[in-house]
Nucleic acid binder design. Structure first.
Lengths: 319, 319
DNA sequence: CCATTTATGCTCAAATTGAGTATAATATCA
DNA sequence: TGATATTATACTCAATTTGAGCATAAATGG
C-alpha cells in the first residue's frame, strides 16, 4: 500500500459550479459579482472541506448558497481537472484540483449583471443563425497555421470542428475550447504562461478566471449531449410552458435550429409532457400550455429528447 | 476568495483504475495480487502526487505500470468519489478522495489469478442466459423489505432494476450496486460500519477492498453505455476478429444476448470494420476476418455500435 | 374583412429496426 | 463416403421512426 509521505505538497480541492439557465433565447450562466467595478469573471466556487462536507455535493451547495443563492434543480458532477499549470498556481502554494459541477435552474435572472450569456464566452458555438462567420474568418485560419506545426492534432481538430466533410457535433464544446487553448488562441493560454500564446487573444470570446471557462465548456458539452437521452431540459423550464417555448429552450442549449413540427411530434409522443388545458396568450394563435410529467422521468428513463437538428436551419425569432 | 485555512485535515487523492478486458466469454478485470494467500481484492491504485504527475492520467499510468504492467488502450476518467465513510478511513488520517478511471485492454490474461471475472462481483448483471434467478430469489425479497422502511427510494429501485413493467437497463450498474449498498445488502456496507448491514452479506457477489467495487460498477456501467455511441468495443478486440467474436464481446460486456443477423448488418453498415480477406478456421463454416478501420473512428464519431438487445435471448455458446 | 402571426394537424417517402427464413461452407462421425 | 451438426452469411418483410413539407386553425391589428 503506497500513500503520501509526509512533507509532500498539500492538495486542495475546489468545487466549482456552472449554473445554467435560459432566458429569452439566451443561454445563461450565473457568475459571482465580487462587488468591484470589474465584470464578474468567475463561477461560484470554494474548497471542499471534508470535516464540514459529508459529500462534495453538500460542499458545492454551501458555496453556491453563500455566493449566489440560486436554487438548483438537476446537479451533476462533470470532471476533475488536475493538470499542472491550468490554475495559475503560485509556486509553493498547495496544488489545486478542481472538481467541476453542472447545475440547472429554471430561475430566470436578468435582474443581476452576474447572469451572463454563455455564448459571449463561446461565440463560435451559436449556430442558430447559421455557421458563425468568425469560424471561417478568424478561427480556422489561426487554427490552421498552428496545425501546420502540429500535424498530430489534425484529426482531433477535424473531428472537433467538423471540418472537410464531417458534421458539426454540437456536443464537442470542450474539445473545441481545449484545442483553441492548446493552440494559444484564447486568453487563458496566455494567462497560464503558455509560450505560444499571444497577450491579445486571436479568437473572440470573453475569458474567465482560473480554469472556469474550461469547466463551463465541459458543462455546456455535457448538457448538450445529455439533452438527447435524458429529460434534463425540463429542469430549465418553468412549471408550465408551450411547446414552442420548449423548442426555443432546446435550440438555445444546442445552439442550432430545429424542425418545428417534428419537434412537436417527438415531444408529444415521448409522454414526458401533458396538457394543462390552459392556453398561453401571445401574438398569434394561442398555444396550449403543457407541464412536465414527473412520473415519466422514471418510466421512460432512456428516451429523453432525441432531437436531431437535421440540416441546420435558422431558428425562428424568439417571442 | 476562500481557501483552506492552515490546520485543516489534509486531503489525499487516490487514483484507482478498473482495467477491463474480455477472454473466452468472460468480462475480466485486472486486480493486484499482493502476493499473500488471500484472493486479490483491489484495483491497481496509488496517490496522485502533483510534483511527480503533471496530470492524473500520468499518475495512474505509473501505478498501473508498477502494479500490474498491463498495456492500456482507451483510458477515461469516471468519477470522483469523496463521501465520508466510504473508504474505511481511520480517524485522524487524511481524508481520501478517489478518482476512478476506466481503462480498456485487448490483452487477454488468463495467465494470472489476478484477472478476475467481473460477474463474480456482480452476478446479477449477467443476463446472457436470461434473468439470473438470484434476482427473484434473493435480491428482490431483501430489497423489498428494506424498501418497506424507505419508500422514498422506491422509484429509484424501480428504475435501477427495471421492475414492474420497466425494462432492465443494462447500463445502470452503479445505480443497482449503490442501492444494494444503501440497503446494507453487500459486504462493503458492513465493512464501512453502516448500521443496517449484516456481517454476512445477504446478496451473493464478492466484495473488494475500499470503494473498489463501487468504482468497478461505475466502470462497467460507463462501458456499457458508451458501447452504444462510441466505437470503444474495438479496444477490447485483437487486431483481426470475426463478426461473431465481435458480437460475443459485445454480449459479454452488455451482459445480454443479441440478434446475430442484425448485429452483423449493423456492424457492416457502420463502416467501422473492413474485411482482411483472410478466413478464420473453427468448427463450422469459416468466417471472414475483419479489422477495425482506425480512420473511421473520427469519420463517424457519433455512430458507435448502437446494439439493441431486442427481447432478451440466451446468447449462443462461446466457441 | 384582410393580412399577419403563431400553432397545430396531416401526408409521404426514405431509412431504420426487429424478427425471421433460406442457403452456404466447413468439420465430424457413423 | 455421405449424412449430420455447426457456424456463417444472404435476403425478406412488416412495423416503426425520421426528415421534410403542405395545409389549416385561431388569434391579433389594422
Amino acid at each position: 500500500m503506497q500513500h503520501t509521505k509526509a512533507g509532500e505538497p498539500q492538495i486542495l480541492i475546489d468545487l466549482s459550479t456552472a449554473i445554467i439557465g435560459t432566458d429569452a433565447g439566451t443561454l445563461q450562466c450565473r457568475l459571482v459579482d465580487d462587488g468591484d467595478d470589474a465584470q464578474p469573471r468567475r463561477l461560484p466556487f470554494g474548497p471542499f472541506v471534508p470535516d464540514q462536507h459529508r459529500t462534495m455535493e453538500i460542499g458545492l451547495r454551501q458555496w453556491v448558497g453563500e455566493q449566489v443563492g440560486v436554487e438548483l434543480g438537476h446537479v451533476e458532477q462533470l470532471y476533475t481537472f488536475a493538470d499542472r499549470g491550468r490554475q495559475h498556481t503560485t509556486p509553493g502554494a498547495p496544488h489545486v484540483v478542481s472538481v467541476g459541477y453542472l447545475a440547472l435552474t429554471n430561475q430566470t435572472g436578468r435582474q443581476t449583471r452576474a447572469w451572463r450569456d454563455i455564448y459571449s464566452f463561446f461565440p463560435w458555438e451559436d449556430w442558430r443563425e447559421g455557421e458563425p462567420s468568425m469560424l471561417a474568418d478568424i478561427i480556422y485560419p489561426a487554427l490552421d497555421s498552428w496545425l501546420a506545426q502540429h500535424s498530430e492534432r489534425r484529426e482531433s481538430a477535424r473531428l472537433a470542428f467538423g471540418r472537410d466533410g464531417l458534421a458539426w457535433g454540437e456536443e464537442y464544446v470542450l474539445e473545441r475550447y481545449e484545442l483553441l487553448y492548446e493552440a494559444g488562441l484564447v486568453a487563458e493560454a496566455f494567462a497560464d504562461g503558455r509560450e505560444n500564446a499571444a497577450p491579445t487573444p486571436a479568437v473572440p470570446g470573453e475569458p474567465l478566471q482560473l480554469d472556469h471557462r474550461r469547466i463551463l465548456a465541459t458543462a455546456v458539452g455535457r448538457l448538450r449531449a445529455k439533452l438527447k437521452y435524458r429529460p434534463v431540459i425540463f429542469d430549465l423550464m418553468p412549471l408550465t410552458f408551450t411547446l414552442t417555448q420548449l423548442q426555443h429552450t432546446a435550440e438555445t442549449v444546442l445552439g442550432v435550429g430545429l424542425h418545428k413540427q417534428n419537434f412537436r411530434r417527438l415531444v408529444e409522443k415521448s409522454g414526458f409532457v401533458e396538457a394543462t388545458g390552459k392556453m398561453s396568450k401571445s401574438r398569434g394563435r394561442p398555444a396550449e400550455l403543457f407541464r412536465f410529467r414527473h412520473q415519466e422521468r422514471s418510466e421512460r428513463p432512456l428516451a429523453g429528447l432525441r432531437v436531431s437538428p437535421g440540416r441546420l436551419r435558422p431558428s425562428d425569432p424568439s417571442p
